[in-house]
Design a protein around this nucleic acid. Structure first.
Lengths: 368, 368
DNA sequence: GGATCATGCAGAAACCTTCCTTCCGGCCGC
DNA sequence: GCGGCCGGAAGGAAGGTTTCTGCATGATCC
């Protein structure tokens, strides 16, 4: 049973005192309900005097239109769902933590600026919760292959825009994603330029597109360069497995002299593993990982990270979604590929102790 | 103009195909609307056969009750606002980032488990967005002195529970907070026990209760111990100011040999400042800061942190709020004080290279 | 001067559900 | 046999807004 349907509770505290309705305003202002509605919503043909008068009376009465009634009538709630695929009970995953937080922050901001609010709805939510909230559209982060919730939403005609290419044939209205191939190739080239002879990869076992595209790009690069691939894959949603995989990678007989880790915690895990094996970073081992965490600027040594620029993605996703909801913008599905940014720190430079930041590919202003 | 009120847009994409209403189900099942409603909601007096039949027909038709209509009728939306006081444009502040993310995660989870969803609504949101979403209640993080939004909500009879003691006379229904005094005293004792002779404080200029209580506790401790207070205060929402303040603190003639920083970035800032002045941590300078960031386990050296246990707080706040919404639990305001946890790492131990974790003050189960 | 038109406003339907009230038989006890 | 009770189901009133339609009124134009 959903919250709204639950009425067995006694003596509700939230009893709203009799709120003024549009009726009361109309009566107090000596006009009709229609006139009040028009005056307040800037519609209809009304002289400014009437408009002002109505507004004033409404203010005096502390009138607030009922969101429920408005939603019922207009079919618009001003609410956007924010979904992230979950593993286990937690609303969002550990590996994507910083990414998700940043992305959600930008999305909230962008939505708010256009008059919408975000509702956090993990894909694992009880079905009745999904059904019980009126959504104008949904942002879905990293949709899994045939997500039942997303499928259902699309079937109902609710616009869905995804962060990350939808796997399979998930019929989203639009998606935004990074250029993962280019990002990986850029990193591998960067490491090779820093003197790496054998570059390893720490990757995931799941089939999401991020993992898949990145891994493929790595394998192709190896193929092209003529390097034997050296990688370990682990279930990315399990934090412990990451540490183990990092260790395994550095314990191999064909130990790499540079590693790229696809997930946020890989940096610290690899660093810890390197210490255990007495490997100096960056002298014996070059390190890069994909992360939004600012903490990697303060590790010893600071670790080079790939930023997916979640702020930009979050903003873009929301804009696309609201465009779809409001019917502006292209009617056809949009696919937007956004650049990443490599933040070069000590861990990936053979000449250590010189910390620089690469020039962003777009003007840095507000980029976060 | 709010989103729901905005109708000048053309050719809406989100056109829902004619969804089946309760009327259609009733017709298809050959019963009345009432019967359908009762059957689906488990109310009324109906034989199981009828119930099953109705349910089946509803399923076949893909019937989903309209959330808006239900909300209008019942006065319950199943939506809980999640507010955080903001500085500037961003929905949540930099200093509280990890804390907020963790807290929001737990809150989302707890709300979901009871059939509610969370709506992210920064205090700085445009007023019309606030007005346009039907909230059953609101969680407010670190309410500022006389927050107009909170005041308005309370006036409307919407239950409000705050994370952090409400400043001034904000009439929230309940609050949850850490025992900040005890936490600070514990840290100061810990530092003193590690050999600190003069403990400094990095604090904020704002008047929120966290800053105020912590600073007061520090000053009282100094008074009691007979140490001259050594502290720098800065506007906590400005990340650069933090670095500057950290530097200033270590540049003082009466340089402290131990520092506690009240805010998340203080750890790295202090570490950087210490390096600039050639101070070894923990040999020349003991360091503790308040943070939820796991990154401090991987700095060089790892930094002792005070965790406010945001997961616990987020869960507690939501439980309290939903209790208030549903009218269960005590009618009187509840004040819940929760313990913190000091995670002791190298930076605060005179005998370095031994990393341990303090036993939590409450059984660790599920604590996060 | 009458037809046309813009303007200002009101009435009422529609949105979809919940739930209070009522109704109708059948059955039991006296 | 009849009154009362009970199970089963339906009727219909909210709930508060938006918006379509339509009615006056007064101005404008030929």
């Amino acid at each position: 049973m959903t919250a709204a349907g639950n009425h067995q509770a006694s003596r509700p505290v939230g009893r709203r005192l009799e709120r003024a309705g549009i009726r009361d305003v109309a009566a107090a202002a000596g006009v009709s309900i229609t006139t009040v509605s028009d005056a307040l919503n800037g519609k209809g043909r009304l002289p400014d005097a009437t408009r002002r008068h109505v507004r004033e009376v409404a203010d005096r009465l502390g009138y607030r239109p009922s969101a429920a009634a408005r939603t019922l009538r207009t079919g618009r709630s001003g609410l956007i769902g924010l979904t992230v695929t979950t593993y286990g009970e937690e609303p969002f995953t550990f590996t994507e933590f910083a990414y998700f937080a940043e992305m959600a922050r930008a999305a909230t901001s962008a939505a708010l600026a256009r008059g919408y609010a975000l509702v956090i709805l993990p894909a694992s939510s009880r079905h009745d919760v999904w059904g019980n909230v009126a959504l104008d559209g949904t942002v879905v982060v990293d949709p899994s292959d045939h997500d039942p919730v997303v499928t259902e939403l699309v079937r109902q005609g609710v616009p869905v825009v995804s962060d990350g290419r939808p796997a399979g044939s998930l019929p989203v209205h639009a998606w935004v994603d990074n250029d993962h191939e280019e990002a990986v190739l850029g990193i591998l080239d960067h490491l090779a330029a820093a003197g790496a002879r054998r570059i390893g990869l720490l990757t995931g076992t799941s089939t999401d597109t991020y993992t898949r595209l990145s891994t493929t790009a790595y394998l192709e690069w190896c193929e092209r360069i003529g390097q034997e691939p050296v990688y370990e894959a682990y279930p990315a949603h399990d934090p412990c497995a990451g540490a183990v995989a990092a260790d395994r990678l550095l314990a191999r007989p064909d130990r790499p002299d540079a590693v790229y880790g696809l997930f946020d915690p890989n940096g610290t895990d690899l660093l810890a593993a390197a210490r255990r094996y007495g490997l100096r970073v960056p002298d014996d081992l070059l390190l890069v990982c994909c992360s939004e965490s600012t903490g990697y600027a303060a590790t010893e040594p600071p670790i080079t990270t790939l930023s997916l620029k979640p702020r930009r993605i979050g903003t873009a996703v929301v804009q696309l979604l609201i465009d779809a909801i409001e019917g502006v913008g292209p009617a056809h599905p949009v696919q937007q590929v956004m650049p990443t940014e490599l933040i070069i720190r000590t861990s990936s430079q053979r000449r250590p102790h010189r910390t620089t930041v690469s020039a962003p590919r777009t003007p840095a202003r507000g980029g976060g």
